[in-house]
Write a protein that binds this DNA or RNA. Structure first.
Lengths: 344, 344
DNA sequence: CTGAAAGCGCTAACAA
DNA sequence: TTGTTAGCGCTTTCAG
């Protein structure tokens, strides 16, 4: 079962050459119907499975794709990875997952490692620390397939999949405004990330639309994306200690949203009485929270699927791909009690 | 960068033979210090990386391990996978993850697929449907390395890693009893799984200790492990509709615990007023729930690490491994308000 | 100390 | 229609 038959074993058993066996197995037409039938039957009988390693060596393709994300224990990314695997598996690719933990150095090391493993392509979501994308540019220039998703590198010319961050952010902020909140803070990931800037834009635009001035003190960046708990706690405490402290926070990152819930609970701050909350997250249990959490949800599974399909298409393209597209998908605003204005 | 240098390129560039290069790179002693230095320096300069595929073909080892779990979007398993990857990565193995979705057929297909990928060993947690473990027995008899974790096959002679399910279950049940609950139901996964039986034993033993008779109507099995939402809802509704309906439920599975919270919320049943709750889960946000959830938590990350270490040790053992061990780790009972008896 | 050659499993160009 | 052979990148005898 695990010491599988080789093409050679079959050839010997049947008294033909290995190439004949290969041809039969690959459905080549330059082979006798008789021989073919014989070989296929025998192969079936002994449960022949081609050795993927030998194939890889021959074809110079590993049939694997590398994935670079900040971490897997994150609802958004675990769902995206699910989508990635669902496509990859069906197309005969396996995926190697690496985590950056929001560090640029680890990101580079991971890319190197994946390259040395001869992955056929890369699915990348940048770390919060990354500003230098030259390693990707170098690879892309050489024709190596890379698809970015979620945390994309705007300046690189390749396929990208991203959610409509602007609108997701705008909608959530507008909801808070319509509820009657006036002092809305924005807690978000590093400004290095395009998604942070897009989400801030959506936030700011909603404020503008309703004539609410933006206070720069209400904008807090967690440059480690919530990997360091103290950083988040510090930011939130700063907000709470302001002269005119905010009555609502809109949070622009999955991990930060969950961290904030933990911290506010620890500080005994009531949501939404003391401060209202809404944030990006793909948690499936947000409705169970106390209070139920208003969230902006991304179609993470689908994003993973789309990115993987684009990548495999690029990998298997006979011609060098020149025209790249950026797919944008919509987010979903799920309104629950954490964003509710209580009339006292 | 991604079209890497081969040993042949180096040999040609330096005017030596490929075997000499190989020897230098592998630190063989039968080589001149001069030549060695030259080769190593050049290899360093061009950033030589051995082709892992060629190595695999040569060594008949893929340096990858296969993982079989019911699903990754599950707090326990995603944490275990984290542990698995942390060890595997350091030891130069990569992991291929497959999901059974609690189906025996998919489990078999996954094992076949992983075998055809020539994984060096298997890390398995059985599906809820599995009763026939003969495929594993066959492989083990042939000396193929397999380590079971969490949902183990008791009768197979190999390494295993498991939590102290009996004690975890006993402690949680005892807590409920001490709180004053008398009619405690037990909702759990398929009886096929040893962990279900162990957890039931812990539950039953606690009941016995306090002289509480066990009512068979209070025991509900979800044979699909919560993959089918209706099954869980049906079981809970049955409990609630009983003449003497339970005042507390102790749940024996991560997924069922989360599902139950969703269902009770939907049915507008208050916890713990109407019914108290405690259950196995590795969710990191259980304290944020409404109400905060009392949980039995397993050291999933550590379990993943231990299983992987045992597997790699078996894979790399020079001698056929004959003595197998079963590691047992302790669970942790985290007491929160969902299990609290409110005195009215 | 170093080189030539075989072989891991498979495909494909070339011969027959 | 089938067989022979070379080669993918690497290690490892076996000669020299």
């Amino acid at each position: 079962m695990f010491e599988s038959y080789t093409i050679k074993d079959i050839a010997k058993a049947l008294g033909v050459s290995t190439s004949t066996v290969s041809r039969a197995l690959n459905g080549s037409y330059e082979i006798g119907a008789e021989t073919k039938k014989l070989i296929l039957e025998y192969a079936e009988k002994v449960n022949y499975r081609p050795n993927p390693i030998a194939l890889s060596l021959k074809e110079q393709k590993s049939h694997s794709i590398g994935v670079v994300v900040c971490e897997v224990a994150n609802d958004y990314f675990s769902q995206a990875i699910n989508g990635i695997e669902s496509i990859a598996y069906n197309r005969g690719y396996h995926v190697i997952i690496t985590q950056t933990h929001e560090s640029f150095d680890r990101e580079s090391a991971n890319v190197q490692h994946l390259l040395s493993r001869h992955v056929d392509g890369l699915l990348v979501s940048l770390s919060a620390e990354t500003t230098d994308t030259s390693q990707y540019k170098y690879l892309l220039d050489k024709g190596f397939p890379i698809v970015f998703f979620d945390r994309i590198a705007a300046d690189l010319n390749t396929h990208k999949v991203i959610a409509n961050n602007f609108k997701g952010s705008f909608d959530a902020t507008e909801l808070l405004i319509k509820q009657g909140f006036k002092n809305i803070a924005h807690l978000t990931n590093s400004n290095n990330l395009l998604i942070s800037r897009e989400r801030f834009d959506g936030f700011k635009t909603a404020l503008d639309k309703y004539g609410i001035g933006f206070k720069s003190g209400y904008l807090k960046h967690c440059n480690h994306g919530g990997m360091i708990q103290d950083e988040v706690e510090f930011a939130i405490k700063e907000l709470l200690a302001m002269d005119e402290s905010p009555d609502a926070i809109f949070i622009g990152s999955d991990r930060l949203t969950i961290s904030s819930m933990h911290i506010l609970k620890k500080l005994n701050i009531n949501i939404p009485e003391d401060i209202a909350l809404a944030g990006f997250t793909n948690s499936d249990v947000a409705e169970l929270f106390s209070p139920a959490l208003t969230v902006v949800r991304q179609p993470a599974f689908q994003i993973g699927q789309m990115a993987t399909e684009m990548l495999i298409k690029t990998i298997e393209s006979k011609w060098p791909v020149e025209k790249f597209i950026t797919e944008q998908v919509e987010t979903e605003l799920i309104i629950r009690s954490s964003s509710q204005k209580l009339h006292q």
